[in-house]
Structures are given as C-alpha cells and as structure tokens.
Simulated scan of single mutants.
Amino acid sequence: MSRNEWLPPEQWVDRLPKNIAAACALFTDPTGRVLLVKPNYRGHWLFVGGMLDEGETPEQACRREVKEEIGLDVEFGRLLLVNWTPPMPERPLPLIVFIFDGGVIEPDQIRLDPGELDEYRFLEPDQALPLLSVNEQKRMTVALEARRTGATRYLSGGN
C-alpha cells in the first residue's frame, strides 16, 4: 500500500488479523496433583483461567479469573507455556493461551464459583488426561515439563 492509499486508523485496525487470547494457571497440591475445574458451560475440564478482556494483560486476566473462579488472589510464578492454536469451526479465530505457574495450594483454600464451575479436583496427571480436551492434554503435559525444567515452552498448532 502506498502512502497515498493509507487508511484512517479505524479502518486500518479493522483490517488487522484477529486473534483471541486466554490465560490460565497451573496449580498443584502439596503432593503434586494438578488442579482442574469443571465449567458448567463446557463438556470437558480445564485449568483455572479464561479469556482476556479488552486491554487486559495475560497476567491481569489470569489473576482476575483465578479470583473469580476459585476465590484466590495470588501472585503468579513465571510463564510456563504459550500455545497458539488455529481457528476451529466452533472458534473462527486463532487462540493464544498463556499458562502461568500458580504454585502449590491446599484444597481447603479453594472457594469455587458455583455460577461458573460445577466442581474441582486435584488429580495425578495420568488421571487428569482423560478429562481434558486434546489441546488441554498437550498444554498440561508441556506445562508440567516446563515447571520441572525451568524452561518456558511454546506450542504451535492444535486439533
């Protein structure tokens, strides 16, 4: 596009590629079991977290979602994983997921939001896998490895 063809800012922004983003936290209990939550609007289990609101950073969204969903106001550890997944029929935009280290918590610290979540469980990773979507299975496996090794990971693609 030449200088003479520049668009007004609002038209330029409308033509930019679009992505959506989510931020989640990987929590474990003192024995190393992973915390999963069961939303009342999904058929599978998830990490605690959710979509970024407009203007929110991934850290802000994660903190807000954790406080809303399980009643904890925590400082997160480092970023464990960034995952880009392509559009799908039920989600026509690419999704970028950030997973932060939520640390170790005790089950009695959780105050579940019954308006959004049906239940929570702390599970061994092999027990958690069948409850998760294919993408969440990959995220959990890689996030646990990232926590163990200290290296932030990146995943691209998805099913």
Rank of each mutant, 00 (worst) to 15 (best):
M1Y: 05
S2F: 03
E5D: 14
E5Y: 01
W6C: 07
L7W: 07
P8G: 01
P9T: 10
E10A: 11
E10K: 07
Q11Y: 00
Q11L: 14
W12I: 07
V13G: 00
V13I: 12
D14E: 14
L16A: 07
I20L: 07
A21L: 07
A22F: 10
C24E: 14
F27Y: 14
T28C: 05
D29M: 06
G32I: 15
G32E: 13
L35Q: 02
V37Y: 00
K38V: 01
K38N: 00
P39M: 11
P39V: 13
Y41E: 04
H44Q: 06
H44A: 12
W45V: 15
L46V: 13
L46G: 01
G50K: 11
M51R: 13
L52T: 05
D53Q: 13
D53W: 04
E54Q: 09
G55Q: 03
P58L: 11
E59N: 00
Q60D: 12
A61H: 07
C62W: 09
E65M: 06
E65N: 08
K67W: 11
G71V: 15
V74Q: 01
N83V: 15
N83D: 15
W84G: 10
P86S: 08
M88W: 03
P89S: 05
E90C: 01
I96E: 06
D101V: 04
G103Y: 13
D108Y: 06
Q109D: 13
R111K: 14
L112T: 13
L112S: 09
P114T: 14
G115T: 14
E116I: 07
E119C: 01
E119G: 03
R121N: 02
F122L: 09
F122A: 10
F122E: 05
F122P: 02
L123C: 04
L123F: 06
E124H: 08
E124A: 15
A128E: 10
L129T: 06
L129N: 00
P130A: 04
L131Q: 02
V134P: 01
V134L: 10
N135D: 14
Q137V: 14
Q137S: 11
K138P: 09
K138N: 11
M140N: 06
M140C: 03
M140P: 08
T141E: 14
V142E: 12
T149H: 03
T152I: 07
G157Y: 03
G157C: 06
N159Q: 00
